[in-house]
Nucleic acid binder design. Structure first.
Lengths: 233, 233
DNA sequence: GCAATAGTGTCTTTCAGACAATATACA
DNA sequence: TGTATATTGTCTGAAAGACACTATTGC
């Protein structure tokens, strides 16, 4: 039944985006964190993010805008992670945050003198360790993001997104070891990766490493869903 | 730098919840749809859902409230599915919808004379078939929900949530066959289910079926992550 | 030569899938 | 008895993990 004079109107809330940006540095998984310049949580470390720019902005576009403005990155693979909307998660009022997961190959240090100046790479172990306090519920978001990356490594070709365009199989193995936090047998890994049809294809001849025999170079193949999958030990 | 007179304020948007409620009827996967009583899409079929009640309501609480008000159900397992926030998905303005997935054992018909009167079970095949037009982007949400259920059946004990408290192994097999849309070998299924430690535990003696030998009864076990998983053919 | 990493082969165990065989109900 | 469903057993092929072994570089 229509009730044109019904005074009730649905509430309007604030929408934010937050980014879990993962990369590999020194064979360890790192996440990009920013130091907050304003209250609340001024001075604390937080995931990059911000509010929707205007009523017509796509949510993923807002995430890319923050990526560009706050940390100077662009053209990355973004994936919806989850929604965090608990009342009270932000002391400023009701803020619902849409979290995205981004995976990147080895990236440069954030550029000083830009908005990205207070962004820095932190190892995930340290960011989640007892010595670090993250703003809001960003610790939970980071845990969820890392777990998502671990699972996606099993079933998709995501690992190649951590690598440069061409890579060796042992470099790919380092991705799996860093994200999963385990050691893998290089010989079995070699066979398993080769067995996943379309995962990687040969490219270029060799790359000399510091020591030992040079390795063949590969690039990402056409397949994004691995068959058979890379099972986690 | 603080700019107390900065006129920019982040936009406030409308937040909605939508529910993909799945159950089994006649060994086929069904979804609960409602006929919309108001514009937009008046008269079309849609997923149950609605706006956040007030600024302080938890998102999942809003989903449970809609579940109760609109379809008369309570105490169900709810799981965050995804976020749908494309501008233009709702002609009334910018509406971001949080979709939840609910799984239920065989449920009664919605009760006539309540708000749930225009809710009805529709087979998923029919709801996604060419003869049905769903409101908004609810076709996409339903597809995502079914795919999520299929995947979760592999790795978690979700299948028992489709069953009554005690069930036979062939009843459990019917769940897998209905959700995955495949036929399974009862003998191999039997061994596989028994091999997943903690998935199901014996309960009570027997249940006489229409024909043939009575089957042993089981109930859901303590484990929620299956090891080894039930691999989809 | 030695050290170090890349790549191959082989063995054993585990598991998925096909399917024979047995068990227990009802008519 | 026959028919239908439940449960167990057996076989085969694929894949995972352990690990011996060969190959190719720099020193």
């Amino acid at each position: 039944m229509l009730m044109p004079d019904d005074p009730w109107q649905p509430p309007r809330i604030l929408l934010a985006v937050d980014l879990v940006i993962l990369t590999l540095r020194d064979a360890r998984l790192h996440v990009l964190l920013v130091e907050r310049g304003i209250d609340p949580f001024r001075g604390a470390l937080a995931l990059p993010g911000g509010f929707l720019g205007d009523e017509h902005e796509e949510i993923e576009a807002a995430a890319r805008r923050e990526l560009s403005e706050e940390v100077g990155l662009s053209d990355m693979h973004l994936e919806l992670l989850a929604v965090y909307g608990e009342p009270g998660r932000d002391p400023r009022g009701r803020v619902v945050s849409i979290a995205y997961l981004a995976i990147a190959p080895r990236l440069p240090e954030p550029i000083a003198g830009t908005d990205a100046a207070n962004a820095s790479w932190t190892s995930v172990d340290e960011a989640l360790g007892p010595g670090t306090k993250l703003a809001f519920d960003h610790r939970r978001i980071l845990i969820d993001g890392v777990e998502r990356a671990r699972t996606k490594l099993e079933h998709t070709a995501l690992a190649t997104a951590f690598c440069t365009e061409t890579f060796t199989i042992s470099e790919l193995q380092q991705v799996y070891e860093a994200v999963w936090g385990v050691r893998l047998d290089p010989r079995n890994f070699y066979r398993k990766v080769q067995g996943a049809r379309g995962f990687i294809v040969a490219d270029g001849p060799m790359r000399k490493t510091s020591n030992g025999r040079p390795a063949r170079l590969f690039k990402a193949g056409p397949v994004h869903v691995l068959n058979p999958p890379m099972t986690r030990p």
